[in-house]
């Protein structure tokens, strides 16, 4: 394990630009992501959904590969998208055999990124197709767009800083589809001012929501128990 880390670190040092084959790049990226088996992180989470007004929530985020995730709010309420598996990068990168298509380069946020299109060979996989925007220099995925069988299209932005060696982001923004919300009749007794706000919100007709998670501090691979996620 340590050796592999060493190799990777060596790679960053010696290979300022990865210029290899798209296939090779993908498997390298996947290997890197899968290195993190679990982590515990102090996070701040901000939910931006038109019909929701939730303040920034701070708490502890537990992750266990491949798809377990839980937010602990220490007595407070935790609110999490139901299909929270989509929040993990690991899940957006299909496992097993894949077909990797090189889509060339594109400019994104002032950076030249290589785009890979991944199609799993297993046609039972939840992921139909995933597009990855890769910073080759640092061997990091900065943006994903996945079309899933069950969960619509999920888009994710990742920003890296303090935990580059572990390929763990400092900040993740997830873009998701949001359905409309209406309280069952008879339960709401609204103060009039709010109707105006609600009407404004309706006009915006925004059906996209974002969830922003800022990671403050990671503790990695401590061997989290499965019970923690029940």
């Amino acid at each position: 394990m340590r050796k592999l880390w060493g190799v990777l670190l060596f790679c960053f040092g010696t290979l300022p630009v990865f210029a290899g084959d798209a296939n090779e790049l993908f498997y390298l990226l996947r290997a890197r992501v899968l290195l993190v088996k679990d982590y515990t992180a102090d996070v701040k989470m901000k939910i931006n959904v038109t019909y929701m007004r939730v303040p920034q929530l701070s708490g502890t985020l537990y992750f266990k590969s491949p798809d377990k995730m839980r937010l602990e709010r220490h007595g407070g309420l935790s609110i999490f998208p139901k299909k929270n598996t989509n929040l993990t990068l690991g899940n957006l990168i299909p496992d097993g055999k894949v077909i990797v298509l090189d889509m060339g380069y594109a400019e994104k946020a002032g950076k030249k990124l290589r785009i890979l299109k991944i199609v799993p060979e297993d046609d039972q996989s939840n992921i139909v197709i995933t597009k990855l925007w890769v910073d080759e220099a640092n061997l990091l995925i900065l943006h994903t767009e996945s079309t899933t069988r069950n969960d619509g299209t999920v888009t994710m932005d990742l920003e890296f800083g303090n935990y580059i060696p572990y390929a763990l982001p400092d900040k993740v923004t997830i873009f998701m589809d949001v359905k409309d919300y209406k309280l069952p009749n008879g339960l709401a007794m609204d103060y009039n001012d709010e109707l105006d706000i609600a009407e404004k919100a309706k006009k915006e007709k925004a059906t996209k929501g974002t969830i922003q998670i800022t990671y403050l501090k990671y503790t990695i691979n401590t061997g989290l128990d499965d019970d923690l996620f029940k």
Binding site: Y51, P55, L57, G76
Partner: peptide, 20 residues
């Protein structure tokens, strides 16, 4: 007990942190 408060309105869902 105490906790974060949910306020359900006809078209909005609000969470208020418990110390707020």
């Amino acid at each position: 007990g105490k906790g974060d408060m949910i306020n359900l309105k006809s078209e909005t869902f609000i969470i208020i942190l418990k110390n707020d």
